[in-house]
């Protein structure tokens, strides 16, 4: 059975969190993002699932329309060092204070560069539902 938000680490008595999930770029691997969508939903969050082949522009449109708290982008195309910072920069340019979480195949040695670029969290293969929810909560709480 799914856990209630209260049972999930770091999500006690938290105001509702709305998350936009998207595949940024051409990469078609969407298994992980779909699983994450259900984990977040079961964890009590509101999920706006944009799906495949999104651009920074389509994601920003969705963030504005849905008043999202967090953006989650999934990349299994080894493009995270280019596309991750690009997403963060595009949100900042649009005047949106919305943290970005990246999921996918990201080598440990790339983490410092992503943190420096302002990426709020990174989730790798095998992340548990608790880890996924905790990461998004922490990202939401990091808003200035």
């Amino acid at each position: 059975m799914s856990k209630s938000p209260e049972e999930v680490g770091g999500f006690k008595n938290h105001p509702p969190i709305r998350v936009v999930l998207a595949k940024l770029g051409l990469d078609g691997h969407d298994r992980g993002l779909k699983v994450v969508a259900r984990m977040l939903r079961d964890g009590g969050m509101e999920v706006v699932y944009l799906g495949l082949r999104q651009t920074t522009e389509t994601i920003i449109d969705a963030v504005e329309q849905e008043d999202a708290d967090v953006v989650g982008i999934s990349m299994l195309n080894a493009g995270h060092l280019t596309l991750g910072p690009r997403m963060v920069g595009a949100l900042a340019d649009a005047g949106l204070d919305v943290p970005v979480v990246i999921g996918g195949i990201v080598p440990d040695e790339d983490l410092p560069a992503l943190v420096d670029a302002g990426v709020a969290g990174v989730l790798g293969p095998g992340a548990s539902a608790d880890e996924v929810v905790a990461c998004v909560v922490a990202a939401a709480d990091s808003r200035g």
Partner: peptide, 22 residues
């Protein structure tokens, strides 16, 4: 790579960051 799989040239806007990566 992803741009080739999707039928886009390496100089296409969408190919940014994905050329030769996967």
């Amino acid at each position: 790579d992803m741009p080739t799989l999707m039928g886009r040239d390496s100089d296409h806007d969408w190919a940014l960051g994905e050329v030769g990566r996967a």
